[in-house]
């Protein structure tokens, strides 16, 4: 019974778009799945103490080349996407290798990544002849115009994107599971605690950290590519820079970066919350939604440091409240 539960959930998620669901909710579901993938990628680093404040950098560097290659050379996103993901991975090497090699850890690592997100954003804005600067750019409509173009990955029907996003998100969870069941998890756990002791038992600290960073960068890049392709609009402020980088961090913390579903739950909460607050306050009291969101985040960090989902999982698995066991349970 319990074994079949995940498959049941997946099947349920797969049929959602074929039920009469209002388009707006389908739109939200797509955004949640994509952000869920990105946050899952971020948490793969975050849960091992590699706190990145610049994952927006991996987004921008992945999605823009794909869109530009399509607009200027007509290269299908099926080829543009791997190129974009490859570039995100390359950026991961450029930032990760020196940082890990020279033992830039903790706050200093966070600061370096903070710069990374901004550098990518400013570069995109600076190349405004190509990218449209801060006004953003639109991938060209496929010619002749059709409703369904697999070649251009342009669909008028949202359900196509829903299925694509669902598959990618499941792929992200699968990657999480693979990492969690490998010896790399123990190694990264050890590294996050004591790099000297980890190295003394033969762990190559730099390569372990680099590998998880590259996986995280690839997942984030893929998420950004789907986001750009789904919206058919690219903006440097929403696909790179500090603001989206922090949104990823917040969502992962709120949901709980130590559990497999936590980051996705975080993405769900963030997106639903932002949308409903925006609908409630509308154009009056601009900034109120962000203020409430910020306050809630602080409360979460204080009272539920393992996130909402981490809290639920821990309570569910060990209702007696033995906290040391809770910690362990919540990390699985």
């Amino acid at each position: 019974m319990k074994r079949w539960l995940p498959y049941g959930c997946i099947a349920l998620l797969a049929v959602v778009p074929f039920a009469p669901v209002p388009l707006y909710y389908l739109h939200l579901a797509i955004l949640i799945l994509i952000m869920g993938l990105i946050c899952t990628g971020w948490s793969l680093m975050g849960k091992f103490g590699l706190v990145s404040l610049g994952h927006g950098g991996f987004m921008g560097i992945a999605v823009y080349p794909m869109a530009l290659l399509w607009n200027h050379y007509g290269l299908t996103p099926w080829l543009g996407a791997p190129i974009g993901v490859g570039l995100a991975v390359l950026l991961g090497v450029l930032i990760g290798y020196p940082a890990f090699r020279f033992r830039v850890v903790g706050h200093y690592f966070a600061l370096i990544t903070l710069a990374l997100g901004e550098v990518v954003r400013l570069s995109i804005i600076a190349a405004r002849e190509l990218t449209g600067g801060s006004l953003g750019m639109t991938p060209l409509r496929v010619q002749p115009i059709t409703d369904v173009s697999w070649y251009a990955v342009q669909f008028t029907d949202k359900r196509y994107f829903y299925v694509i996003a669902l598959v990618a998100w499941l792929g992200g969870l699968w990657a999480w599971r693979l990492v969690n069941r490998s010896m790399a998890r123990s190694a990264l756990e050890a590294i996050s605690e004591d790099e000297v002791a980890a190295a003394s038992v033969g762990i190559h600290v730099t390569s372990q950290k680099l590998r998880i960073t590259l996986l995280s960068a690839a997942m984030t890049g893929l998420g950004a590519i789907m986001l750009g392709q789904y919206n058919q609009y690219l903006n440097p402020n929403s696909l790179s820079g500090i603001s989206i980088s922090l949104e990823i961090v917040f969502a992962s913390i709120v949901g709980g970066m130590y559990t497999m579903l936590g980051p996705t739950i975080g993405a769900l909460i963030t997106i639903v919350f932002r949308e409903s607050l925006r609908a409630y306050f509308g154009a009056t009291l601009t900034g109120m939604a962000e203020t409430i969101y910020g306050l809630l985040l602080i409360l979460f960090i204080i009272f539920m440091p393992r996130g909402l989902w981490g809290f639920v999982v821990a309570r569910f698995a060990h209702p007696t409240g033995d906290t040391s066991r809770l910690e362990v349970a919540a990390t699985r």
Binding site: M183, S186, A187, E189, A190, S192, E193, D194, V196, A197, A198, S200, V201, G202, I203, H204, T331
Partner: peptide, 23 residues
Amino acid sequence: FQIPRPFKKLSLLENVVLSAYFG
């Protein structure tokens, strides 16, 4: 190490399996 440096997030057995695997 002079002052023991166990990996506290891992169990006793995991500590040693990890060392055996990567060592």
